[in-house]
Design a protein around this nucleic acid. Structure first.
Lengths: 110, 110
DNA sequence: GTACTATACCTAAGTGAACTAGGTATAGCA
DNA sequence: TGCTATACCTAGTTCACTTAGGTATAGTAC
């Protein structure tokens, strides 16, 4: 998995968003992020797994071991109600932030 | 100056952009960011000044002491040619990143 | 049957940008 | 005389991410 140079702080909201589609395991979340951003973000596993543990520790995710479609063991994560609230608030924060920065960068001079 | 919780890595491009309007002193750059983002970003001085020194060390800024309109001493920063190139590349990086994240967050589920 | 790739998980050590929380000094105003 | 805004600074801390490894299994290619 090649580096993606994340703007630090944006990984959490992407993980929460991925899980808003339903339970997903860590590896699948990484794949979801890579695919839905068309390879613009390729999250390192060394960032992804610690982030999952962090979000779970904060009560935003719950884990459960399961089996994938291909018959492999995998740890599935699911949003808690608090996680869903957190998602909404972080999406709002991202939108306001992105709008503000983009506006500043769009203004006239090079 | 109240906290603004920057997405880490976005301050540099804002500083470079501020200076694309012409030489500006540190305090003025902080004000420019706050004003053009309509208070969405309020950069801490403890982040701003180290960032200016960092960008200068990398050869993207040059400094020169001058006097403000109100007759106060201030250190003016100016973009170097390398700084201007860096600005272009960081703006591109931001646009691609923001587009990708926004698309991922805009997709259907909550 | 043996190597290789993709899947699926993990962590320890290091980096470095931002935050916290102070500090100095001056101009202008009440 | 004190208060606010301007204008600069840094030491110490935090913590997310990067680097760089590790384990194990399913499926495929040779």
């Amino acid at each position: 998995m090649a580096g993606s140079d994340l703007y630090i702080g944006t990984l959490d909201v992407l993980i929460l968003k991925a899980l808003s589609w339903g339970p997903m395991h860590g590896y699948g979340i990484g794949r979801w992020i890579r695919q839905t951003t068309e390879d613009v973000l390729a999250v390192q596993e060394g960032a992804l797994y610690p982030a999952l543990h962090r979000l779970q520790r904060r009560g935003w995710l719950e884990e459960e071991w399961g089996v994938t479609e291909t018959g492999r063991e995998a740890k599935y994560y699911r949003l808690t109600p608090a996680g869903r609230r957190q998602l909404r608030s972080e999406v709002e924060r991202w939108r306001a932030y992105a709008r503000a920065v983009s506006a500043a960068l769009d203004a006239a001079p090079a």
